[in-house]
């Protein structure tokens, strides 16, 4: 950790003003990810703007049925909020499957949206990484890549997106509201995180100096049920090898509408419209689920160590769908 300056902002305007579109400055909220990376010397901010005092800690049910979540709502508060438990259980399950109680107690909603990859090559300044140091190469391509992505990869980066929360939000549909030097704007959740392509260092659609103020969940799908299934080596405190957020609304024995998002396999929180199309209007049978799983993973590309993730992700999809459609 190198010395840095520290400033505390009282409101959003002050925060963005203090940040001032300065490349050497970063916002800090819960700090569970940022401080870790500063200690590893892979982020070297010269100035931190503390946004913890900003009035962004509320959850608000909007008249149109949406849920507006303040950027500073902690993962714990979000997971146990009555509206989330009642209308968005997939999000609660996703949140509670991540990290540990201690981390969730301080990790924030916007911080989780901004969470960066756990790729060990990214996290080690002695190793090449196009995300951390554009043009330096990708250590994971020829290295150990058991935990890496099979969807959305490029020849420059195969780092997997680590968040569980974002997978839940991806399935539910949401809007991210940011405020910055250019004013306020809304970004559809699905468009927020970017594929690595030729520019793996660009991880999201956030301009310099912009700050996330809210994440607003779409109104819940009428009659839908949700389930988040996370598969990993051990039962807790590990990032997903493959996970599936499934939200399904039935119409009799047929699936009226389904949302499928995947974690642990994509370079971003992965929404599978292909799987959703394969489910829509179909009977809720194992055969249908397997077709959806095949559709979801049709474009997957494996590297040396992570081929098992493709069948594993299919299993996650099939079981999550079986579970969500079997619920009483």
């Amino acid at each position: 950790m190198r010395n840095f300056d520290y400033q505390r902002a009282g409101d959003v305007a002050e925060a963005t003003a203090l940040h001032g579109n300065d490349h050497s400055a970063d916002f800090i909220a819960g700090g569970t990810n940022l401080i870790d990376m500063v200690k590893l010397d892979i982020m070297r901010p010269q100035r931190l703007v503390d946004v913890n005092r900003l009035p962004l800690t509320d959850l608000e049910s909007l008249d149109d049925g949406r849920l507006k979540i303040g950027a500073l709502v902690t993962n714990t508060d979000l997971a146990y909020h009555e509206r989330v438990l009642a209308d968005y259980p997939v999000l609660s399950e996703a949140l509670l499957s991540g990290a540990s109680t201690q981390l969730r107690n301080v990790a924030t909603t916007a911080g989780n949206v901004m969470q960066r990859t756990r790729c060990p090559y990214f996290r080690n300044p002695a190793r090449p990484c196009n995300k951390r140091e554009p043009g330096s190469g990708c250590g994971a391509l020829e290295g150990i890549n058991r935990n890496h992505a099979v969807l959305g990869t490029s020849e420059h980066c195969i780092a997997v997106h680590p968040s569980d929360m974002c997978v839940g939000m991806q399935a539910l549909g949401a809007t991210i509201t940011v405020e910055g030097p250019g004013g306020t704007r809304d970004i559809p959740f699905e468009e927020y995180h970017l594929l690595p392509g030729d520019t793996p260092e660009r991880e999201h659609d956030l301009n310099d100096g912009e700050l996330i103020t809210h994440v607003t969940l779409d109104a819940p799908i009428d009659g839908a049920r949700g389930h988040y299934l996370k598969l990993r080596d051990r039962m807790s405190y590990e990032f997903a090898l493959a996970s599936c957020a499934a939200v399904v609304a039935m119409d009799g024995d047929a699936i009226r509408e389904a949302r499928i998002a995947l974690g642990g396999v994509g370079t971003k929180p992965w929404r599978s419209h292909e799987a959703e199309a394969a489910l829509s209007g179909q009977p809720a049978t194992e055969e249908t689920f397997e077709k959806a799983a095949e559709a979801a993973m049709a474009g997957a590309v494996a590297h040396r160590d992570n081929a098992f993730k493709i069948p594993l992700a299919k299993q996650a999809i099939v079981r999550a769908l079986a579970t969500v459609t079997a619920q009483g």
């Binding site: 150990i144 051990r234 807790s236």
Partner: peptide
């Protein structure tokens, strides 16, 4: 290359209580 890959508690997996 002989470089260590998983030198931390998150990536070196030991059983946790849930296991």
């Amino acid at each position: 290359a002989g470089n260590i890959y998983n030198n931390n508690y998150a990536d070196y997996i030991v059983p946790v209580h849930a296991d």
